[in-house]
């Protein structure tokens, strides 16, 4: 039950669905094409490689969603995440802090300066330390602007990361995992296969061994992060990568790590690399 793609697994999924939940039918479509506003084609299926020896192919979480959820992401007007991205665009040009500067003052138009930034996140900073996008944003605020740090999952931060991520939409995920990044990547990989909590489940138990199945009436995806930040219908708001990790670990009834912890940065790098070649969708819609 590892392949989403072949028609046969689709039939299996439907059977599993009935068996596990009693819900009659659902319509995730492994052959669906993600096209934004009829113009921008995004890659939702990418070939596997040595990073993911146990995945025959890489799939965006978008493929596992019901048609209504998928449709909401295909139209920028209907995608509620765009409200956050617009708020982020406003923040980009708003001066803040003792230096009286805005992001725009140093970085210019985000369309140019931030293109590709999401696709390469997280990456090592100048001191060789692994940072997530939130770290870079807050470092600019506290060290360069003389402004207060934003909360990791606060409205301002998620609006800003939505806006910045949008500038990489359609670009393939491509993170550095060798050289000085290698120890972080290995730490992340070890976490991915660690069984957490009373349920003794690892990320891999669900997102590598069981994707395509239903769990609590939710279609299990490969747990990719190419779509982040994500507008979750459940939260009616933007969810950060670390927030999602936290929820997933909590579901195994384990103590979880904090957003912005070193553990989650390392895990983010590893999970990002598992999606190499998939398009950045930021900002996506998920249930």
């Amino acid at each position: 039950m590892q392949h989403l793609k072949p028609a046969k697994s689709f039939a299996l999924t439907a059977a599993a669905l009935v068996a596990l939940t009693g819900v009659a039918m659902a319509d995730p479509d492994p052959t669906a094409e993600l096209v934004i506003d009829g113009e921008l084609h995004l890659v939702t299926r990418a070939p596997s490689d040595a990073i993911t020896p146990n995945l025959p192919e890489r799939y965006s979480g978008w493929l596992f969603r019901e048609s209504d959820t998928r449709a909401m992401q295909m139209d920028d007007f209907e995608n509620p995440a765009m409200l956050a991205a617009e708020a982020g665009a406003d923040l980009w040009t708003t001066a803040d802090g003792t230096a009286g500067q805005s992001c725009q003052d140093c970085h210019g138009d985000a369309e140019d300066s931030m293109a590709g930034v999401r696709a390469g996140m997280p990456h090592l900073n100048a001191d060789g330390v692994l940072w997530s996008m939130e770290d870079y944003v807050n470092n600019c605020r506290t060290e360069r602007m003389g402004a207060e740090a934003w909360r990791w999952s606060g409205d301002e931060m998620t609006s800003m990361t939505s806006f910045i991520s949008l500038q990489s939409r359609g670009m393939p995920v491509s993170v550095q995992i060798d050289g000085d990044a290698a120890p972080y990547w290995e730490q992340g990989r070890d976490m991915y296969y660690t069984r957490y909590g009373q349920l003794e489940l690892s990320c891999a138990s669900c997102h590598e061994e069981s994707y395509g199945l239903m769990i609590r009436a939710d279609h299990l995806s490969q747990g990719q992060i190419n779509g982040f930040p994500t507008y979750r219908l459940k939260n009616a708001g933007i969810v950060s990568i670390h927030n999602r990790f936290r929820g997933c670990i909590r579901d195994t009834r384990a103590e979880t790590f904090a957003e912005g912890s070193d553990e989650f940065r390392a895990l983010e790098l590893y999970v990002a690399s598992r999606g190499t070649g998939l398009s950045i969708e930021g900002v996506s819609v998920r249930p």
């Binding site: 007007f77 765009m82 409200l83 708020a87 406003d90 609006s159």
Partner: peptide, 10 residues
Amino acid sequence: MTEVRPRIRL
């Protein structure tokens, strides 16, 4: 809540 911003598409 952040600033209220209406969006319209015609």
